[in-house]
Design a protein around this nucleic acid. Structure first.
Length: 338
DNA sequence: AACTCGCGCAACCGCCCGTCG
DNA sequence: ACGACGGGCGGTTGCGCGAGT
């Protein structure tokens, strides 16, 4: 490869002095940066062009926002990272005043650790399989004596459910997306969603409404397929690409429900209120453009409330395979979680 | 007060890609 | 078609600082 430009003889490296900063700012304000390679000589700087460019774009640019990341910015980064991965410049496009370098540093020093501590794989944003897959086994070991004495597999199942719920609760604590526009649906999509037979249902808190924080989200009890997204697939041709289902669960903006965010190459579906979806599509002009709702806002979609098992289909052997897509939760599960 | 250690962040490194002659 | 160049990007480094001992 080409040798770095800063290896050229006599060019300064390392931290910038206030005097150098001033020279660079003065020059760019007067003349613009033009050719970065030519700039250092013209500005009277003993630096390579690349160093000047980085200093300007990451630090001296007047529109740079300084200070701590707000919770909203943090959430935006998390959600965009779930979709875009380490595309820092693409993520920075959605955070005015923040540089890709700053976001990258924030991710590496804060957010990545946060995810790891919560048991998530920072790259996939999914629970780490190494821990999660061993959970039933660990619980079984811990309770072996008791289980042998009481022959209580039901008890073990309940304990497992609680552990799963705790993990889900951690995920729930993991703050919601705030910068996505939602919800908007076209009537065709609505009609198709309405035609789904019991694919999505909920217990309601006040008999009629679907606005309880931790309502059950997906009820797969009446589905042949264990995967609710398969049901969508069958009934909603436009969402065929969602065979790889949910990779994220969030509270929604108003703490009204849980969002299932499904990642796809050109579509993202938010399932926030039960049976209420936002289908977001990439703009046609730019692969890094914001995700936009595909249509005007519809009335909310509701289905009849159903009661469901605490964790539908959960047992000690299938627990690892259905996380998190089929998880059903009841508030009572969280009563003893501090 | 002196020292160690860990963290955060600015800066650098090197690869990649588009453009141009 | 090809190579040099300029700029962009993601990954990594290392310095400075503050907390802890």
């Amino acid at each position: 490869g080409r040798s770095p430009c800063c290896d050229e003889l006599g060019l300064k490296k390392g931290p910038w002095t206030p005097e150098e900063d001033q020279k660079l700012v003065n020059y760019i304000q007067k003349h613009g940066h033009g050719s970065w390679r030519a700039l250092p000589k013209l500005a009277g700087l003993n630096r390579c062009g690349k160093s000047c460019r980085l200093r300007w774009t990451n630090y001296l640019r007047p529109d740079i926002k300084r200070g701590k990341f707000t919770p909203e910015e943090e959430q935006t980064i998390l959600n965009l990272h779930a979709i875009l991965g380490n595309k820092w410049s693409a993520i920075a496009n959605h955070l005015p005043g923040r540089t890709d370098n700053e976001i990258k540093n924030f991710w590496n020093t804060h957010l990545k650790k946060k995810l790891i501590q919560m048991g998530f794989d920072p790259m996939t944003h999914r629970p780490r399989t190494d821990i999660f897959s061993s959970l039933p086994h660990l619980i079984a070991l811990a309770n072996l004596k008791e289980l042998v004495e009481n022959n209580s597999w039901e008890e073990q199942a309940v304990r497992l459910q609680t552990e799963v719920a705790k993990l889900q609760y951690l995920q729930y604590l993991f703050q919601p997306p705030t910068n996505y526009p939602m919800p908007n649906l076209d009537m065709d999509t609505l009609n198709l969603l309405n035609s789904l037979p019991s694919a999505f249902s909920t217990k309601d808190n006040n008999n009629n409404n679907f606005n309880h924080n931790l309502n059950p989200v997906l009820n797969t009890a009446n589905l042949d397929s264990p995967n609710p997204f398969d049901a969508i697939h069958d009934h909603l041709p436009s969402l065929k690409t969602l065979e790889t289902p949910t990779n994220f669960i969030n509270k929604d903006n108003n703490n009204n429900g849980i969002s299932l965010v499904s990642n796809d190459q050109d579509q993202v579906v938010f399932h926030h209120q039960p049976c209420e979806f936002t289908v977001l599509s990439k703009g046609e002009n730019s692969p890094t453009s914001p995700w936009l709702p595909s249509s005007p806002s519809p009335p909310p979609v509701t289905t009849a409330a159903t009661s469901a098992p605490l964790i539908d289909g959960c047992n000690t052997t299938s627990a690892t395979s259905f996380w998190p897509d089929h998880l059903l939760l009841e508030d009572s599960l969280f009563n003893d979680i501090p």
